[in-house]
Nucleic acid binder design. Structure first.
Lengths: 129, 129
DNA sequence: GCTGCTGGTATCCAAAGGGAACTACGATGG
DNA sequence: CCATCGTAGTTCCCTTTGGATACCAGCAGC
């Protein structure tokens, strides 16, 4: 159990607990995807951008910087000729990937159960064809 | 493994996949907290609001409506005198709680590893005393 | 000197988040 | 009769974040 220095147990439901900020950081679409993109090893900005389809460079930069600030990713610049920047997970970031990977996976595995998926209501579409 | 009816595997990294929307819904601070607040059974609006310290009624309403729309929670109105509204998890919502609970728990368990936690840099505070 | 590659900023606009006050409803009660 | 309370929101306004597009810097090669 968390043994906080503040003398009371950490609780994501408490507004003042730093947990709240961490949850806000991790419980975020782009953070969850970006960390997942680094699971297989370091990646360059362009590669992450390509993997996270639809992310704008501004938002991706902001997301990565925020993750870096909180010690979840490392940013390494190789000042070679075409400039080369690599992002990688810190040990903490790797650990954080586990629950996020489970969440991403749960979504993928259960998406067809959601109402509103055009999928469910139309048996005529070729299933698994 | 997800066997999507669309013929190709679902992928949260694909911009066009409905998974993206689901991830956006679940990978959200207030959604994660609100679903967790309903894990122990139905709760009333006021109770949820009290548990999720710091949430404004506007945002809570929006969050719950969005979860309801996507079939994760049920909203039941008891038109008694003082008006009574209960929110509860659907089976899908209950399932979604598992990965979210793991995430919340990971945050609580690992918060002290984060740099920037005032905690780490000050051994004078009684840790686990 | 122009193009291309890489890794971003700058700019602008729309959407979401957040705080505080206000509404509707009927019971209760002075 | 009017005021007050409790519940569950809604409305307003402002700030923050997200998102799309355009542009910039440094250097290789042509």
């Amino acid at each position: 159990m968390a043994t906080p220095s503040c003398g009371k147990p950490h609780d994501v439901y408490a507004a003042a607990c730093p947990c709240r900020d961490m949850l806000d950081l991790l419980a975020n679409k782009w953070s969850a995807l970006a960390l997942g993109a680094l699971e297989d090893g370091p990646r360059r900005f362009g590669a992450i951008r390509a993997k996270l389809e639809g992310v704008s460079p501004k938002v991706l930069t902001a997301t990565l910087r925020r993750l870096e600030e909180h010690g979840l990713v490392d940013r390494t610049v190789y000042p070679a000729v075409p400039l080369h920047v690599e992002y990688s997970l810190t040990p903490l970031g790797q650990d954080a990937c586990e629950p996020l990977a489970l969440l991403r996976r749960w979504v993928v595995d259960n998406i067809d159960r959601f109402p509103g998926s055009p999928v469910l209501s139309d048996p005529s579409v070729s299933v698994g064809a």
